[in-house]
Simulated scan of single mutants.
Amino acid sequence: MFKLFIKGLVFGSGFIVSLLIFEKLVALNSIEHDAIEDNLNKLMQTPNIYSFDKADLNEKITLASHVFVTKYEESENGFGNAIITKVLKNSETHPLPYSVGDIYPNDSYYLNDSAHKMDGSVVFYIGHEHRIRKSFLYFDGQLAALDYMSLDEFISIFNE
Score class of each variant (00 low, 15 high):
Asp56Gly: 07
Asn39Cys: 02
Asp38Val: 02
Asn39Arg: 13
Leu40Ser: 08
Asn39Lys: 14
Ala55Pro: 11
Gln45Met: 13
Lys60Ala: 06
Asn41Leu: 14
Gln45Tyr: 00
Phe52Asp: 01
Lys60Phe: 02
Met44Ile: 12
Lys42Ile: 04
Ile61Pro: 07
Asn58Ile: 03
Tyr50Ile: 13
Thr46Gln: 11
Ile49Asp: 04
Ser51Gly: 10
Pro47Lys: 07
Ala55Arg: 04
Leu43Arg: 09
Met44Trp: 00
Asn58Tyr: 01
Pro47Ser: 11
Thr62Lys: 13
Ile61Ala: 11
Leu63Tyr: 08
Ser65Tyr: 00
Ala64Ile: 02
Lys42Ser: 05
Thr46Cys: 06
Ala64Trp: 00
Asp38Pro: 00
Ala55Thr: 04
Gln45Leu: 12
Asp38Leu: 10
Ala64Gly: 05
Glu37Ile: 13
Asn58Ser: 13
Asp38Gln: 09
Met44Gly: 01
Thr46Pro: 01
Lys60Met: 15
Asn39Glu: 14
Pro47Tyr: 07
Asp38Thr: 09
Lys42Ala: 07
Glu59Leu: 10
Lys42Trp: 00
Asp56His: 04
Phe52Leu: 04
Thr46Glu: 13
Thr62Pro: 00
Tyr50Thr: 15
Tyr50Arg: 09
Gln45Glu: 15
Thr62Phe: 08
Ala55Lys: 07
Leu40Tyr: 04
Met44Val: 12
Tyr50Asp: 12
Lys54Trp: 02
His66Asp: 15
Asn39His: 02
Ile61Trp: 01
Asp53Cys: 04
Asp53Ile: 12
Met44Lys: 14
Leu57Trp: 02
Leu43Gly: 05
Ser65Leu: 01
Asp38Asn: 15
Lys42Leu: 11
Ser51Asp: 07
Leu43Ser: 11
Asp38Trp: 00
Leu43His: 05
Asn39Gly: 13
Glu37Phe: 09
Gln45Ser: 14
Leu63Arg: 04
Asp56Phe: 05
Glu37Pro: 00
Leu57Ser: 06
Ser65Cys: 03
Lys60Trp: 04
Leu43Phe: 12
Lys42Glu: 06
Phe52Tyr: 08
Ile61Met: 14
Leu63Gln: 06
Glu59Tyr: 00
Lys54Met: 15
Glu37Trp: 01
Thr62Leu: 12
Leu40Asn: 07
Phe52Gln: 03
Asp56Tyr: 05
Ala55Asn: 08
Asn41Gly: 04
Asp56Cys: 06
Ile61Ser: 10
Ala55Phe: 10
Thr46Val: 14
Asp56Gln: 03
Lys60His: 07
Met44Tyr: 01
Glu59Val: 05
Tyr50Gly: 03
Thr62Asp: 13
Lys54Tyr: 09
Gln45Pro: 00
Pro47Glu: 10
Ile49Ala: 11
Asn58Gly: 04
Lys42Phe: 07
Asn48Asp: 12
Asp56Val: 06
Glu59Asn: 12
